[in-house]
Structure formats: structure tokens, C-alpha cells
């Protein structure tokens, strides 16, 4: 298979065994992969552990767009980014973990900004329930304790 592979293409294998053929310029947007390629310790197939096919496909989509649109208007890319990161929490956290682990700086930046926008201006209770998955019991006890210690509200 690798012999039939075009030049400057790499195969990325997700944790669940699915393979993706990706141009090298796109793959090396991950600094971790870039290091592997530069050190020549990578064969044509690069395993991407801890990242499943679903998430890997998303990361590749993001990198491809950013690679293609270097010449494109920055505003177009911004629109793409904001649409790209607009996902459910589960996918977001998986993507963040993948971007962090694989060291894809642009993606990590866009994702962190998105989470910040999501939690900005929310109430503490909202954060506990929506973003930390607190249970009712925890909410009640933590409220009791933290309301004693914290008087952070501004007048």
C-alpha cells in the first residue's frame, strides 16, 4: 500500500484502526507529527493513539482548511473556525485533548477561545451543572460551604 502512495502523503491511523491519507503539509500542522517526520522515525503510516477516527477526521478537516486558506481572507477562516468549534461539549473536550496531545496550536487556540466564550457570563450554578456535571446533592452541599467562604459578587 505504501508503495502506491503518492509522494508527500502520509497515512494517519486512529486509535480504533481507521486510516486516513493526508498530505504531509497538513499532517505536520501537528507539531508532534512534525517532530516524528523530521526525526525520520515515522514510516508512511503514523499511529495516532488516544484519538479515535471520528475526532481525527475533524482535526484533519480543520488542518486542511487552514492549509488551503493561507492565502484566503482572514475573515473567512475566522468564520470557518467559529463554525468548526461550535460543537457539543463531549466532542469539544475530545478535540481539545487531541489538539493538545498532538500539539495543533491553531486548533487548540480556537477551541479554548470557544470554551471561554461558552462559560463567560454564566452563573456559578450553571457552570457546575452544565460544565462539571455536578449532581443535585453536590450542588446543595457545595453551595452551602462555598456561600460561607465566598462573597465574590460585586455590588
Amino acid at each position: 500500500m505504501s508503495s502506491s502512495l503518492e509522494k508527500n502523503m502520509l497515512i494517519l491511523r486512529s486509535s480504533d484502526g481507521e486510516e486516513f491519507i493526508v498530505p504531509e503539509v497538513v499532517a505536520v500542522m501537528s507539531k508532534a507529527i512534525k517532530n516524528m517526520v523530521e526525526d525520520e522515525c515515522a514510516s508512511n503510516t503514523i499511529p495516532v493513539p488516544n484519538v479515535d477516527a471520528n475526532i481525527l477526521a475533524m482535526v484533519i478537516e480543520f488542518c486542511k482548511k487552514h492549509d488551503e486558506s493561507e492565502a484566503e481572507a482572514a475573515s473567512d477562516l475566522k468564520t470557518f473556525d467559529s463554525e468548526f468549534v461550535n460543537r457539543g461539549q463531549e466532542a469539544l473536550y475530545d478535540l481539545i485533548t487531541a489538539a493538545n496531545f498532538r500539539d495543533v496550536k491553531e486548533l487548540l487556540d480556537a477551541l479554548c477561545q470557544n470554551v471561554a466564550e461558552m462559560i463567560k457570563g454564566k452563573s456559578v450554578h450553571h457552570i457546575r451543572i452544565q460544565f462539571l456535571g455536578y449532581q443535585l446533592f453536590e450542588i446543595l452541599t457545595s453551595n452551602f460551604i462555598w456561600n460561607i467562604w465566598c462573597d465574590r459578587d460585586f455590588d
Binding site: 473536550y93 481539545i96 485533548t97 479554548c112 471561554a116 462539571l132 456535571g133 455536578y134
Partner: peptide, 21 residues
Amino acid sequence: EPRNGMESLQPDIALDIFSRL
């Protein structure tokens, strides 16, 4: 379902997110 949510993120990522608030 898994209850951790944001807490499953690495500490340096949490710090990055917080620095944008």
C-alpha cells in the same frame, strides 16, 4: 454518563481557557 466535563481537561488547558475570561 461521565460526570467530569471540563474537569477532564489538562490543568494547563484549563489555565489557557481561564486566561481568556
